[in-house]
Design a protein around this nucleic acid. Structure first.
Lengths: 341, 341
DNA sequence: TTGTACGCGTTATCAG
DNA sequence: CTGATAACGCGTACAA
């Protein structure tokens, strides 16, 4: 039977609605027998309380949402699971909200925040090149878990991120340490204040500190997708520079590039080495396996909800940044050039 | 300001709440000027109506949900987008519901169906080895878009799927036509009535019709993930059968197998050919590119909501099956054996 | 321990 | 065209 309500159950059990409510919500002040009886009736009748009505009442519900931009990103799906688990552990319910590539994540955030009377928000992905105005409209604490908020003003923004500059620096340094001298940089669109910009700086500094002059013609800017990787690889081959290694700012870019090099008859890692960022699940299963930077994703998830909950409780504890460590997944896409020549 | 309601807006504009409601919901009977004024006030005040209250009232809301099992499956994410777009086009709102790997998708379906007072449901993924009992508890129309419902009884079940038997048959036939005689079969767990079982039958029949005796020791059963692919490949190599081709029932299995073969020093496609199912985005970017079966995913999405909406409108039009066509994405993982020996 | 009655924020009805 | 007011289904004071 459709459209059953708490009243129907109450009637069935010859009790009042509040008793049914108490039974469902594990209230202490109820006769165990009555409770038993009611729960059985609910089970039998296959009754499920109306969610909207519930939320309407307890709009103090301890709920947060995770906003995911870029549903196809397999990197996120793992994190989402951890986020959900972590929330549950802390007694919060967690709702998932996907946002289309075209939509503005802040518009969505503000809307669902109010619609659902959320207590907090975790952002996954998106670019966050945001106007002050929108950010200040956000009335609940937020944690960005993709990009760092240092230098970003606004309401209650916190972030859990990696140090993009440093990681990129280290990655480049690693390559240099292996004897690579001419290293190209494959990346998506470089935006002021964006992750890619930071990674570019890290790359640049590592080069300079090693006494290798930075050559801007070695920076190949495209989009962050497979095809762009192919294209960039092709371009590099055509320009015929004697590059021995490539730093790609994302695994999918690196994977595309590997395909591109293959098509050009350039062998990875024999003719050219390549490294990525993200450590996608697939990266391990490629041939050759892709050397890449891995974020401690479970730690990231834990820190993110920890930070958010802190900010929810203490309104003034706002704007904390947490940097989580990363590690290098060394695989076969990099060649050791030392002792050659 | 937090927690604003329709009343606040009404007060601000010196009108009644119903007038505000009318302005928001595009009701015709309202003075354009009043409407203008109210909308401006809403905009200014940054007011967003409470979702729960809305849904509580219009529990006739035209909403359906998409249930996704296996969030990591990139194949689904594409389909989800199409489903959402298609729903919107038909004036339905569409909510996404992810279900954990451990959860029973029917339990979830029944629960959210009632919680949210949904009009219909689309299932993505999951195994559906379901008891009659649960299925009959489902009170709203459902469309399964992963598996075919032929032979499955129950409430209002419809499905959009591919003909797994036939596709597998054709794939095997294709390999045979290319001169392959000893063809192994890599698959996940074989369950009665499941897709894999059907694909196995297709493989089997293609073999037999070509006069090649079916050899059950050539069927390698594992799980549907990368590691299982590696393991199966390793097992095959160790057994040292002179297999020249492998049919894998999923791209990820095939990708894992490619890695496994590589590790064993077996070259794809020179020493062994391999084909998959799904045509994941990544399959195209592997080296060598994976030959695989592609479903017309946009068509699948369109058909799915079309079917669902039909079933929502005509309660008796239930239980229709739609088979959508597939195509072969021919890439480099298969070798033509003809004219050799 | 239990039941009655009110209110959550919204939309729909109906009388002005 | 507009404004009271009655639902929607549930949780919870408060009274019993």
């Amino acid at each position: 039977m459709a459209g059953m309500t708490i009243k129907d159950i109450a009637k069935k059990c010859h009790v009042g609605v509040s008793t049914v409510s108490r039974a469902m919500n594990n209230h202490p002040d109820i006769n165990p027998e009555t409770k038993e009886k009611i729960l059985k009736a609910i089970e039998e009748a296959n009754y499920v309380p109306n969610n909207s009505a519930r939320n309407l009442k307890r709009n103090d519900a301890k709920a947060i949402a995770v906003l995911v931009k870029g549903i196809g990103n397999t990197f996120f799906s793992e994190l989402v699971g951890i986020l959900e688990r972590e929330c549950e552990k802390k007694g919060y319910s967690c709702i998932l909200q996907y946002v289309d590539e075209q939509e503005d994540e802040w518009d969505v955030a503000i809307r669902v925040g109010k619609e659902k009377r959320l207590r907090g928000l975790v952002f996954l992905g998106g670019s966050f090149s945001q106007s002050q105005e929108k950010i200040s409209q956000m009335e609940i604490p937020c944690v960005l878990s993709t990009i760092c908020t240092v230098g970003m003003p606004g309401a209650s923004l916190a972030s859990v991120s990696v140090d993009d500059f440093k990681e990129s620096y280290k990655m480049t340094e690693y390559l240099i340490g292996l004897g690579h001298k001419k290293i190209a940089f494959f990346c998506g669109q470089i935006k002021e204040n964006g992750v890619i910009k930071k990674r570019l700086c890290g790359y640049q500094q590592a080069l300079e500190e090693a006494g290798i002059p930075y050559d801007s013609t070695l920076v190949y800017e495209g989009k962050v997708d497979y095809d762009s990787g192919i294209e960039l690889a092709r371009k590099l081959c055509n320009e015929n520079k004697d590059v021995t290694a490539v730093v790609a700012t994302a695994d999918i870019l690196a994977i595309g590039a590997m395909k591109g090099f293959y098509e050009q008859g350039v062998s990875v890692p024999n003719d050219i080495s390549i490294v990525g960022f993200d450590d996608l699940e697939i990266s391990k299963y490629l041939t050759p396996g892709l050397t890449t930077v891995r974020q401690e994703i479970s730690q990231k998830g834990e820190k993110a909800v920890e930070l958010l909950l802190d900010n929810i409780q203490d309104a003034d504890m706002t704007k904390r940044e947490v940097i989580i460590p990363v590690s290098l997944s060394r695989r076969e896409s990099v060649r050791d050039m030392r002792g050659e020549e």
